[in-house]
Amino acid sequence: MRRLLLPLLFLLATATGALAGAWPRERGTGFLSTGVQLAWPQNLEHWTSPNPTQQYYTFYLEYGMTDRLTLGLDLGRSVSGAGKTVAFLQWPLLDRESGPKVAVAFGFGQIGDRTVLRPGLSVGWGLQRGWLTMDALAEVQIDTSLTDYKIDFTWGRNLAHDRKVLLQVQTGQPADDPAFVRIVPSYVFPLGRRGIMVETGATYGVTGDSSMGVKFGIWKNF
């Protein structure tokens, strides 16, 4: 798997970049999300208590500086598992009425105690009642040139009453660890009438990840 995954991630993630997604934000509008993920070993024999063995928190922000330039901030956990603080700019390469949307981004920040550059690429397709996206990135340590790669595939479907279901396949290749594949299904529903969305979901490692867990998050467009 490593032989197939690494070249694909390299080609996609070093093209230039995008974590903001393939659809650009309109000028003066934004998106905010925050969440928590808790995980336990899949093998119940490895449990020493019901407390999660892994937990981390995320904060993500996008803001449309112009109709073609999006500013973002990404806080949480990196591909390698270390804490991250990355600011980025994203802009569209292909933004037609029909066909795929393509956007690139370039980020700069801190992962653990290392300064990193983070290029990425996003491709999105609008479906009749939903969407399909591919988001790839590389996290390059400036001082060592060690690089972590990640690519996520997300399928989303819009339901009645502004509800949504998502299925994400997360894959990655940390510089010092085996490649991993993780399945993350989730359900999103509105909370009240202020445009706040709540996401609840689960995570399950398929390969290179022996954990399972739950996730909770809040979205807000503004």
Rank of each mutant, 00 (worst) to 15 (best):
E62C: 00
N51K: 14
P52V: 05
W40A: 08
A22W: 09
L32C: 01
G35L: 09
T58N: 04
F31T: 01
W47P: 08
T58A: 03
N51C: 03
E45K: 12
R27N: 10
G17N: 03
H46M: 02
P50V: 07
T58G: 02
G28W: 07
F31W: 09
L44Y: 13
L44D: 09
V36F: 01
T14N: 05
W23V: 11
S33G: 02
Q42I: 05
S49C: 10
H46L: 15
Q42T: 07
Q54S: 14
F10C: 08
G28L: 06
L19W: 09
L61P: 00
W23M: 03
W47H: 14
N43K: 08
L9M: 15
S33E: 15
E26V: 04
L32F: 15
L38F: 15
F31G: 00
L19N: 12
L12Q: 11
R25F: 00
F10E: 15
F10K: 15
L19C: 00
R25M: 14
A15M: 09
R27W: 01
R25T: 04
Q54K: 15
L38Q: 12
F10D: 11
N51Q: 14
T34W: 02
T58V: 04
Y57M: 05
S33Y: 07
G21V: 01
G35C: 05
Q37D: 03
S49W: 14
L38Y: 14
L61Q: 02
L32H: 07
Q42M: 05
L61I: 01
L12T: 14
P50C: 04
T48L: 08
G28I: 02
L11G: 13
T53C: 13
E62N: 08
Q55K: 13
A18S: 15
E26N: 08
L9A: 11
W23I: 05
T48E: 11
P41T: 00
T29C: 00
E62M: 01
T16I: 06
A39K: 08
W47F: 13
W40Q: 10
T16M: 05
Q37Y: 02
A22P: 11
Y56N: 14
L11E: 12
A20R: 06
S33D: 10
V36R: 11
N51F: 11
L11W: 10
A20K: 05
L38N: 07
Q55L: 13
Y60V: 03
L11V: 14
Y63I: 00
W47C: 03
W23S: 09
L12S: 12
S33A: 06
T58L: 01
P24S: 04
T29Q: 07
F10V: 10
G35M: 06
G17W: 04
T16S: 08
R25A: 08
E45N: 13
V36M: 10
N43D: 15
E62L: 12
G30Y: 04
A39C: 01
L12A: 15
W23P: 02
P41I: 00
L19V: 07
A39G: 10
P50R: 04
P50Q: 05
R27E: 14
W40M: 07
A20Q: 06
G28C: 04
L12D: 06
T34Y: 01
N51H: 08
S33N: 06
T34A: 12
L44C: 00
N43R: 14
V36H: 05
Y63A: 02
Y56L: 10
W23Q: 07
L12C: 06
T29H: 09
W47M: 12
E45H: 10
Q42P: 01
Y60N: 11
A18K: 07
S33V: 00
F31V: 03
Y57G: 10
T53A: 14
L11I: 13
